[in-house]
């Protein structure tokens, strides 16, 4: 899909360390509409492409609004977003949705941890406006670090929202277990939050075979819907050796540590030196060397920056 120019029309502080951006089309065509749970990719630098969930689902005014938490360990995405000023232009790719509401669900349980509130709030707004049945649990470290509290305590959402502030992990587990146990059969559960929160939710929902689970992954920088948040495994097709790639390391780095040196030059996804064939698994492309068609074909990737959509990636090495 092609990139579209967008202008930052408004920057708003939503909470300590959380900013939201309102993006408007900068010339050319209008933005494409989207459904709750959708995300857009922002190009924040030549090899810095990050997905962010869209918040403004109801009464859509043609803009895209995203909320981003500044991560101290940011590899560029959230830091760059927090540097953006009103009037600056960036490129945006039309929305995709890996986290849609199930139209057949009779009841929805929406669970957000921290900045994971962004897609969850969009869903809650939509359900409230369309008369859907839902309840929302929002877990955060402190009120000052939780975004959109004004709206969540407003008339349309207050009655169905439970805020859980400053809970220790065992207490989070108890609250979640409790909420899940109260759900009617066939409830669809939607979860977005930091990795431990998602893992906990997954574990607890597994004990309720009558509940349907939807997960929106997000990792270091922001909502990362497609990426394997806990890392992934790379298998070398020729030798059969396999390596775990943790979320904070690149494939090239891990291979080099294990004595497998793949030639590189820019290590920024620009020059193409490390281009490697993909035998199986879907790469999550983060480079600017390959064309859109080559990205879509998925049979080759730049292992200095790109990652994996699947748990396992088999490379032609």
């Amino acid at each position: 899909m092609t990139w579209q120019a967008a202008r930052v029309a408004q920057v708003r502080e939503e909470a300590v360390g959380i900013r939201s951006l309102e993006l408007v089309p900068a010339g050319g065509s209008d933005f494409a509409p989207f459904a709750p749970g959708a995300h857009v990719e922002l190009q924040l630098g030549p090899s810095l492409i990050r997905p962010y969930s869209l918040v403004n689902t109801v009464g859509w005014d043609g803009t895209y609004r995203v909320a981003v938490k500044l991560e101290p360990t940011s590899r560029g995405g959230s830091r760059r977003v927090h540097e953006l000023r009103e009037g600056e232009e960036i490129a945006v790719r039309p929305p995709r949705n890996n986290f849609p509401l199930d139209p057949g669900a009779k009841h929805h349980l929406l669970l957000a941890g921290g900045i994971g509130i962004t897609p969850i709030l969009g869903m809650a707004r939509h359900l409230a406006a369309s008369g859907g049945s839902f309840e929302l649990g929002y877990f955060g470290r402190s009120r000052s670090e939780m975004a959109f509290l004004d709206e969540l305590s407003g008339a349309s959402l207050r009655a169905r929202t439970a805020l859980h502030v400053g809970l220790e992990p065992p207490a989070v587990r108890d609250v979640l277990a409790d909420m899940l146990a109260r759900q009617p059969r066939g409830t669809h559960v939607y979860v977005c939050g930091p990795s431990p929160f998602m893992t906990l939710a997954r574990e607890l929902v597994a004990g309720h075979p009558d509940l349907a689970l939807h997960l929106e992954y997000f990792s270091n920088d922001a909502a990362m819907p497609d990426q394997q948040a806990d890392g992934f495994r790379v298998v070398l097709g020729r030798s059969g050796r396999s390596f775990e790639i943790p979320p904070d390391r690149t494939i090239v780095e891990v291979l080099a540590e294990n004595g497998i040196v793949v030639p590189t030059s820019c290590e920024q996804g620009v020059c193409g030196t490390c281009q490697t064939g993909v035998i199986s698994g879907r790469p999550e492309h983060r480079d600017l060397f390959l064309s859109d068609e080559e990205h879509a074909a998925g049979d080759t990737m730049l292992i200095c920056v790109s990652r994996s959509l699947d748990r396992e990636l088999v490379l032609d090495l």
């Binding site: 630098g45 030059s265 620009v270 060397f289």
Partner: peptide, 16 residues
């Protein structure tokens, strides 16, 4: 052999 940077995305693309 060039050691390239982010700014080289355009040159790399036309060359390909």
């Amino acid at each position: 052999k060039y050691c390239l940077l982010e700014i080289d995305v355009g040159p790399v693309r036309y060359k390909r």
